[in-house]
Amino acid sequence: MLSPSDILLIPFDDWVNTLVRDILVPNFRPFFRALQVPVTSVLNALDAFLQFVPMLVTTAVLALIAWRTVGRSMALFTLIALVFIDMIGLWPETMTTLSMILTSVLFCTIIGIPLGILAAGSNKLWAVTRPILDIMQTIPSFVYLVPIVMLFGVGMVPGIIATIIFALPPIIRLTNLGIRNVRGDLIEAAEAFGSTRWQILWEVQFPLALRTIMAGLNQTLMLSLSMVVIAALIGAGGLGLVVYTGLGRLDVGGATAGGVGIVLLAIILDRITQALGEQSGVRTPSLRQTLVSLFRARRAPTGETRETGS
């Protein structure tokens, strides 16, 4: 049978090799190096910190956070899950994964929220950003690794950079959505009182979009977690590496242990961030709150203490 490749075989891989090895890497190496620096330092600091803090302390703190944000049963779950992880001997790997996730989420937030805010303010910018985000979200996570390896090489930090890029779209999208969905008459009211753009953003748009932004943060976190595991393929460590080595050696038990660790961590982080999202944003006061506020109004007003909290 005749196939097009008999007539012309395009040396696509050679072209890419030339592009990367002979053009991009020699000319832009300092640039890509520089990009790695902040990620490296944050990651190292976090990892060192989490490895240093005793397991029981970390567990207690996470359980406390779960208790405050979600409730008692989630706190109990966190406690048991983390103890279990420790008992199957995966505590250090779990902490490495956690620090990788936190690093990635941190950078996603730093990049994503301002970008989302900018995109919300300009239809032109959004028209450009949107298709890029669409493409980013259609590319399978696996394929992300290719250009990253091309540009950054292999290792822990390239793995995290891949994670950041992979997990970035939801927080940009939902920040943009949240800001755009703030009622027009509220913006108009803020403007009519002489607010600057910055004041409108800070006083009105951001607080009202916070709920949506937190939903984006939750999605970003979940994507980070899934990518951080895959990043083990290009040399990132943590639980992903446990699974990856387990698979490589056909060690079903080791791979499963790593998988269980990932699932438990995912559940804990997901529930906590979801609950954070529900707490923020517009308050819909319950009957109890209404009664409390009635009662409070009768006593001497206590100044705007609430404001500092928000």
Binding site: D185, L208, V282, R283
Partner: peptide, 15 residues
């Protein structure tokens, strides 16, 4: 066009 995330007093104090 009251700000739903602010108390009545904070709303009035906005300007």
């Amino acid at each position: 066009a009251l700000f739903p995330h602010k108390t009545i007093a904070e709303n009035v104090a906005y300007g």
